[in-house]
Design a protein around this nucleic acid. Sequence first.
DNA 1: TCCTGGCACTCTGTGGGTTCGAGTGCCAGC
DNA 2: GCTGGCACTCGAACCCACAGAGTGCCAGGA
Lengths: 338, 338
Amino acid sequence: MLSERRLEVLRAIVQDYVGTEEPVGSKALTERHNLGVSPATVRNDMAVLEDEGFIAQPHTSAGRIPTDKGYRLFVDRLAGVKPLSSPERRAIQNFLDGAVDLDDVVGRTVRLLAQLTRQVAVVQYPSLTRSTVRHVELLLLAPARLMLVLITDTGRVEQRMIDCPAPFGETSLADLRARLNSRVVGRRFADVPQLVQDLPESFEGEDRGTVSTVLSILLETLVEETEERLMIGGTSNLTRFGHDFPVMIRPVLEALEEQVVLLKLLGEAKDSGMTVRIGHENAHEGLNSTSVVAVGYGSGDEAVAKLGVVGPTRMDYPGTMGAVRAVARYVGQILAES
Amino acid sequence: MLSERRLEVLRAIVQDYVGTEEPVGSKALTERHNLGVSPATVRNDMAVLEDEGFIAQPHTSAGRIPTDKGYRLFVDRLAGVKPLSSPERRAIQNFLDGAVDLDDVVGRTVRLLAQLTRQVAVVQYPSLTRSTVRHVELLLLAPARLMLVLITDTGRVEQRMIDCPAPFGETSLADLRARLNSRVVGRRFADVPQLVQDLPESFEGEDRGTVSTVLSILLETLVEETEERLMIGGTSNLTRFGHDFPVMIRPVLEALEEQVVLLKLLGEAKDSGMTVRIGHENAHEGLNSTSVVAVGYGSGDEAVAKLGVVGPTRMDYPGTMGAVRAVARYVGQILAES
DNA sequence: TCCTGGCACTCTGTGGGTTCGAGTGCCAGC
DNA sequence: GCTGGCACTCGAACCCACAGAGTGCCAGGA
């Protein structure tokens, strides 16, 4: 077990290293933090912390830097979540309030988060399957060509083209539209499949095939992984990565471009509460020197999607966590209002 | 006027520099290209080219590199557009054909273009004002709350929330929806304002105010600059920028994050034909060491939007132009089909 | 048992000096 | 107008010495 003071030393190391980006030595530590002990004592503590794997030396006779394990301990036991100042809160609210539609909300959120944390921001669109149906629209574009439009309570809109096996009349269409909506409006998208299962049966002849086609397309859009969308921003903050950033930045940019990787990344985050993944805790190799701070957000209690930031493991965790949590909260509010 | 051989020397310099990323000297030039003259002669030609401002020396006693003016000449007079190989063409088509909706088309296009050119790709969504109306939908979400959904012939869908001044009945709504659609479907969005101008007059009492509100929101969504959307990708290709890339990359990333900057960038491109802006020809300072290759695309003859790539001035212009043109052509086809 | 001051040691980063080589400009000759 | 030759320039690479920061360890003291 680590003594209280050793934890204090670790905290000091993390704080200094995050601030200066340079390995921190025993002397500098005692000067900047009043630990009440001499550099020699701190050196001994550091030796122990290094043995335990919380800190490391880039090379002999250099200062120490925290390891992933050290940051882990810092986040779990030493750091709180730093709440935002009230001007910051007001700024967030004002900025988000100006959004005209969901794309705008997500876009503004990304920019906001990137700016607040000075890191790369990732915001997932509200998941379809976790939202409820506000409306399903069907439009006849040509005799055998339909457009399906899904609208969720969070303002998300998805559309799909449908080629029908046979021409479909305006009356049948109105009929289908009405039945479909009466069954699903206000229900959760996740429940839609079973709610519409038997719909084709109530149609006659060729129409039945068309209805089946429509429903199968509808169900396709709800398939996990396909239905997820996200937006990222603030990639220029990667240039703040550090001195050795040319090496680091490429794999990170590459990872960020792969929607799949990002979705998995956010998917690994807990549904409720904040998730912090540090360095090698991230499965993706390119992100081994980054940390991910993610949290779910939603209009109600339940999370409809996640958002977060990606930055160097050497980041200001309390501040980042504070910003992420605050933004998630406000986005939730905005969604609830719309 | 520059002699034929001097142009040939310039072409050789551009080609070699693009390939090697290193200043090219007179000896290396004569070795790799059979110009039929000695290094000394080439040196004289180079001196002339330098006097004219087409090439420059990073420092005395180094090789030459092309200036922006040199690239300009190269693009205008020395380089053709390199057509893609037919396997490449087939790959493009296959890849784009799999798209399920417009977002998907744009997303795939960005990825494709980034991959083909190994540069940053920028694709604008089809402009609303240059598209025609496929359908306008109005949904009653609450007694005094509407959702407006616009659908274009290119598959773009925009939605807006509308808070009505007074409750609006389902019958009035159906009426408005029908009248609105009968007037605008099949017409160009740009013409919509005058087509709906007098609509409020045909409604009575409180409904008239609501209809006005709806129309004003509708017109708002058509305002230039607001209605433009775009997607970018391939930013990790920036890491291929060169040795001094840490300095170059930040302003570029920053510029790429500003939608406004990008829209202006694409806006400056000619509507038809390919536009190449080299280095300082770009108004935005951060892009002074990049070139932009852009072209309009559309389902018919007319461009509904633009797409292009951003890369170092030292890029393979013929290849890039070939890829950009080919992709634009295929995207146009895809849009025409949908 | 734990802390402290002292000391020898080990690295890295930096600055100066040298060399090497690619590349140039210029000139005389063909 | 082209060419070979020649002197010159300047950056990159290398080496080396040195200062400085930091460490580990030890013996002495609370």
